[in-house]
């Protein structure tokens, strides 16, 4: 008799280093980082003018992402400046989302807890990456032109444009819309991180429940659900990187093209 897996929202701690508790999703995140580093060195060492197979894959991915970033930023220089960060996040999420697909990885059990768990199905990793991207977008805009970036949110300049009494309601409206944008920035953070977390966690839960329904459903039936979660893993990695690019680009363009007062 198969049993439903116990679904836990927080990842379970494995061991402790000093005050730091290492959970199983952290172990998986570091393992996928290691795989990426090894892969990168391997590709770099074998890089030739006539590309080998692994080099082809890496170059294809890089060109794909760079092309998308150029479209969003509108210039190659800007795109190349932020390319290392965005591409790192992209490949890291791509590996981390698919990490538990490696055979026998999920059967490694220490003290009744699995040693590896999809890193992004714990909320700490998505919110850390989301915080990084959102704060970076503001920092970039602030270093370019601090006053203009702040005036995108706290719009004091609308009050100087008042010429008659008719303009006052419009000015107040603009001012409060600017304040609302501050809440919009917080919503960006929540939406970008919960999207990644929700998709990956839901994929895991669906596969676990389908596999645990009956004895007969353990073997062939989960395959379409696993395929779906593989697809959503790639798509979410791409969307996360792309949304990060859009946030940075919109902050930069909001500073550079805002009308002078």
């Amino acid at each position: 008799m198969a049993s439903l897996p116990d679904i836990s929202l927080p990842s379970s701690p494995i061991f402790e280093i000093g005050a730091l508790t290492v959970t199983n999703s952290m172990v998986a995140a570091f393992a996928s980082m290691l795989i990426i580093i090894v892969f990168a060195f391997w590709v770099r060492r074998g890089a030739t003018l006539f590309p080998t197979r692994s080099q082809m894959i890496a170059e294809m991915l890089m060109e794909f992402m760079l092309e998308k970033m150029q479209v969003i930023f509108g210039s190659e220089k800007e795109a190349r400046r932020f390319f290392p960060l965005i591409f790192t996040i992209f490949i890291f999420l791509m590996f981390a989302n698919q990490f538990t697909l490696i055979p026998f990885v999920q059967s490694v059990v220490i003290e009744g807890k699995p040693l590896f768990r999809t890193a992004t199905s714990d909320y700490s990793l998505p919110i850390a990456l989301g915080l990084l991207l959102v704060i970076l977008s503001h920092l970039v805009a602030l270093t370019r032109s601090p006053l203009r970036h702040i005036s995108n949110f706290i719009k004091l300049d609308v009050f100087f444009k008042i010429r008659s009494f008719k303009d006052i309601p419009q000015a107040l409206m603009d001012f409060f819309l600017g304040l609302l944008d501050i809440i919009g920035e917080l919503a960006k953070l929540v939406s970008i991180s919960t999207r990644l977390f929700g998709n990956m966690f839901a994929g895991e839960v669906v596969v676990g429940i389908v596999a645990g329904l009956m004895f007969a459903t353990q073997f062939v039936v989960p395959i379409p659900f696993i395929a779906l979660s593989i697809l959503s893993g790639f798509v979410q990695a791409f969307v996360f990187a792309l949304l990060g690019t859009i946030y940075i680009a919109s902050a930069v363009q909001g500073v550079e093209s805002s009308p002078k007062t």
């Binding site: 999207r195 929700g198 979410q236 791409f238």
Partner: peptide, 19 residues
């Protein structure tokens, strides 16, 4: 690619309710 991004954006309300 634009369709994928738009779908992921439209999905976010369902993800909120999931959370």
């Amino acid at each position: 690619t634009n369709m994928i991004v738009a779908i992921a954006l439209a999905e976010s309300t369902a993800i909120y309710s999931l959370v």
